[in-house]
Design a protein around this nucleic acid. Sequence first.
DNA 1: TAGATTGTTAATCGATTAACAATC
DNA 2: TAGATTGTTAATCGATTAACAATC
Lengths: 208, 208
Amino acid sequence: MIVDLPSNTVERLSLYRRKLLYYYPGDKPFIHSHRLANLLKINPAHVRRDLMLIGFSGDVHKGYDIKKLIKKVGEAIDGPTYQKIAFVGIGDMGRAVAEYFNSDHSKLEIAVTFRLREEPKEQFPEVHCYNISKMKDIIKQENIELVVLAVPRSRAQEIASQIIDTNVKGILNFTSVHIEAPEGVYVENFDIISRLEKLAYFTNMPKK
Amino acid sequence: MIVDLPSNTVERLSLYRRKLLYYYPGDKPFIHSHRLANLLKINPAHVRRDLMLIGFSGDVHKGYDIKKLIKKVGEAIDGPTYQKIAFVGIGDMGRAVAEYFNSDHSKLEIAVTFRLREEPKEQFPEVHCYNISKMKDIIKQENIELVVLAVPRSRAQEIASQIIDTNVKGILNFTSVHIEAPEGVYVENFDIISRLEKLAYFTNMPKK
DNA sequence: TAGATTGTTAATCGATTAACAATC
DNA sequence: TAGATTGTTAATCGATTAACAATC
């Protein structure tokens, strides 16, 4: 791992790797900065700068060796050991947000949901599903370190406390409840309500 | 609506309003900038600056009038008419991400999911649920303008095209597929995979 | 070689925060 | 009044992008 990379660089490195994994299955073995930048709709200088920060060099003519780059990104941002992730209540995210929007506070309204499958009881392949009452025990048993939390706000506080009370190290928080976490637990917040309000704001802007 | 507010300011205004709606139900009618800043874990100057941008004034002694502030935020960021939102495939978000992580590309593994209800067939109160095959027609019929898209990447492209082919004005994109949108359709991307990788990176950093 | 790309520094841009006069 | 807060400008900070020498 390379310490002290800027937060946005880490995020982009993850994107570079994924693009390359998906878009180059045995294809050309090299890629230029402008091509990679183009795939991500960012500036080529950005790509070069990010790769410089992780000490990865390309060939002036051929560009960057894709396989080596994928490997190098892993060495830069992946941790030394496997980490398990739990998803808590993602299915309830829409419901949680609906609680807010379908009130008279907002000019937005969640009117419809669509679902890909008829039988939502079907589970993920290779992923177990448990009732939330077993969450705390299983997080501990299974040594889960990262949690994606998306539950209605009425239950968020209580469930977050239970999570904090395990050995979890990071929480991606989709609820709009503030999570008070002890030293050593990283919380990243994504507030879907404010994002939707922001999105709506820009759809309402007069065309430039 | 106030035109040309910075994107981050719009997002924060949305957060101010929600905090005040939830935390001040008939309580004190005024709030100081440092108190509001504290609720959101931001800098008081930020609050004052944002409110200055929407032309909202407080009282030097009492602070800001909460009811008036909530109203003013609405005038600044809410659009002139109601806009409907559709959620597409949120229930499948975990599955979509699992596809990626539970492979050998990553050192992360989605090991467990938890679910709040036994009977996930239960629908949102007041929100209809349809099969995705009816999506395009219903988006048009119901005049839905905003879509939250969270489907497995294998279907993302095809479904996104269908959405673009309606009168939708904004998409909050949880898939990691790039959506090519025509002029006038705002796409905001949230890549959960790169966020999780970033989160993991920081959990693996040596303690400062 | 000529032309194109990398690696890296410096400039630019935008967002956050510090500072403080004005106010009551 | 004295002390605290607002409103606003200027300084700071960090991230993005432009520029270009070095390279092959």
